[in-house]
Design a protein around this nucleic acid. Sequence first.
DNA 1: CCTGACAGTATCATTTAGGATACTATATAT
DNA 2: ATATATAGTATCCTAAATGATACTGTCAGG
Lengths: 114, 114
Amino acid sequence: MKYEPNACRVEDALSILVGKWKPIILLHLLNHGTQRFNELRRSIPGITQKMLTKQLRELEAEDIVERVIFPEVPPKVEYSITEYGRSLQPILEAMHDWGTKHTLRKVKKEKRAE
Amino acid sequence: MKYEPNACRVEDALSILVGKWKPIILLHLLNHGTQRFNELRRSIPGITQKMLTKQLRELEAEDIVERVIFPEVPPKVEYSITEYGRSLQPILEAMHDWGTKHTLRKVKKEKRAE
DNA sequence: CCTGACAGTATCATTTAGGATACTATATAT
DNA sequence: ATATATAGTATCCTAAATGATACTGTCAGG
């Protein structure tokens, strides 16, 4: 650990990943490439339009996600991960791997407690 | 990206790191080893006793931090990272590195916008 | 005798995140 | 004529996170 507490930038990365739906949204875009708004919505059960819009806007503001509007009617809007957003992929994967082990560990612990 | 959205465990890792003070607390414990309660408090400007206690308890509940009480008076309580907690270090470092670059990128962007 | 250090807890208030629901406009399909 | 799909907004409400402040008991130092 080389970095100093007063120069801690963990929060900056965290703030981008945090949000009830953000990891799932990123995962979908990483796995399936470009997606339309309702396409995403349908593949994320439980999310409301408002939340999907909000989280996408926040990701867009940080250059993680790109939003392309087609001037058609009915409207067509496509979302995709930016080149820059892809740089988060290793972190997402590391967290996923850690999370998987952690969940397993918890299950084992609960069993021992029975 | 090999893992599926319905098996996404990113949130599990995230939930442990999230908390306004958790990264900073972990960083201190990683950098300086065992610390007493008020020692931590003094090195984290702005944190209240309540919040420090709360975040430490949450980290303890997940086996990330160990709490050792010395039956003395006045009380003495020592906190340290567990072996297991150390497994989070690569993720913290990856996030810090990413966060540093991200902050830099933002600054550059703002300058261009002037 | 009074004060400060220690490691907290308890209570209340505020701030932020998230959710439910209704609404917009236009075009195609029935 | 009505329903459906598109991609959203607007408004209101609840729940969770965080913060401010006051309090606890005991001991050592002045």
